[in-house]
């Protein structure tokens, strides 16, 4: 029994979401093989070989895979899954994994289980539906099980300690259907939202984008990432990649501090698995207090600077 895991990377660094996905593969059992598909990504293969519990790394290094276009990578993954007899194909439920894996599943003529949060047995998994308002237990009836993994539900395996072999894959699939035009990637010295130990998020109560500087000061003291509710994104305070919620990022840090966030169901769906939740809001009736471990009814413009000063 073997699992093919799609490594999440940017051609130079193996992303932490890969480690949670390897943990899900470990819960399934059997051999774990990591596929690094990209261009000039040998360094990533080196990091992948160090990951605890990985038996082998497949390195598909070609210009066709440089931007990990689904049209090119999906046939590669489907071909590997079939020819090497993998029973499972796993990817992190990131935008990259969500973009790629259903295309792989359809090429294999199998279904896909999206966003699993637990492994119940070799063919049965739990996954959230209705924005996490219900949890479904689903049995796969397919010979090859294609699955995306919700990172926050699986503790990451160690990034080091493994010593897997690296094998080059020479197959090149260039569908010629799509091309990379450009990207706007937010640059920040703070941790990524989905990998942060502490997150401080702002909502509509922040009033404007400039006021997020208040949260950034606290974030810098705590080594935290800064997030936002959809209301704050829709109001144009901050860009969408900061959004935590059903339609944004799903996070589960050790500490989540919600500032000026009322706590719409849609936001709760993205953060309610955090270990400790703090809510700061001047409206004591705000639904966010129903899920907060520690609630502070206060004006955020007084409380947040005071919090920063006392850290």
């Amino acid at each position: 029994m073997a699992t093919l895991i799609i490594a999440e990377h940017d051609n130079s660094i193996l992303k932490p979401a890969t480690l949670n996905t390897v943990a899900a593969a470990a819960a399934i059992g059997g051999d774990a093989v990591l596929l690094v598909a990209g261009e000039g990504c040998q360094a990533v293969a080196g990091q992948a070989a160090q990951v605890a519990g990985v038996n082998k790394v497949l390195l598909a290094d070609n210009a066709a895979y440089g931007h990990q276009l689904a049209e090119n990578v999906a046939p590669l993954v489907a071909e590997l899954a079939k020819s090497a007899g993998f029973e499972y194909v796993l990817a992190p439920a990131t935008t990259t994994g969500k973009n790629l894996l259903p295309r792989v599943a359809a090429l294999l003529d199998v279904g896909q289980l999206s966003d699993i949060v637990s492994v119940e047995s070799a063919d049965t998994f739990k996954r959230p539906i209705y924005a996490g308002n219900a949890i479904a237990t689903v049995k796969s009836l397919d010979a090859i099980k294609v699955i995306t993994v919700r990172g926050t539900a699986f503790d990451p395996v160690a990034a080091e300690g493994g010593s897997a072999s690296i094998e080059a894959v020479t197959a090149v699939h260039d569908a010629g259907l799509s091309r990379f035009v450009g990207e706007e990637v937010a640059k920040s010295d703070r941790p990524e939202l989905t990998a942060a130990r502490v997150i401080i998020s702002g909502g509509r109560g922040m009033g404007n984008g400039e006021n997020f500087a208040l949260l950034e000061k606290v974030a810098d003291k705590l080594g935290a990432a800064v997030g936002a509710s959809r209301a704050a994104v829709d109001a144009g305070f901050v860009p969408n990649d900061m959004q935590v919620g059903q339609t944004g990022k799903i996070v589960a840090p050790e500490l989540y501090i919600a500032v000026g966030i009322s706590g719409a169901i849609q936001h709760l769906a993205g953060m309610k698995d955090s270990k400790v939740i703090v809510a700061i809001n001047k409206d004591e009736e705000a639904p966010i207090f129903q899920v907060a471990d520690y609630g502070l009814v206060a004006d955020l413009f007084d409380a947040v600077p005071e919090l920063e000063a006392s850290l």
């Binding site: 199998v110 279904g111 289980l113 049965t124 959230p128 539906i129 996490g132 308002n133 219900a134 949890i135 479904a136 237990t137 689903v138 049995k139 796969s140 009836l141 397919d142 309610k272 939740i277 004591e284 207090f289 129903q290 899920v291 907060a292 471990d293 520690y294 609630g295 502070l296 009814v297």
Partner: peptide, 19 residues
């Protein structure tokens, strides 16, 4: 391709305290 075995409500999060 799949069989739905069961559906359950999510674990309730207990409200905490006000400071």
């Amino acid at each position: 391709h799949t069989e739905l075995l069961s559906v359950e409500p999510p674990a309730e999060r207990k409200g905490g305290i006000k400071v």
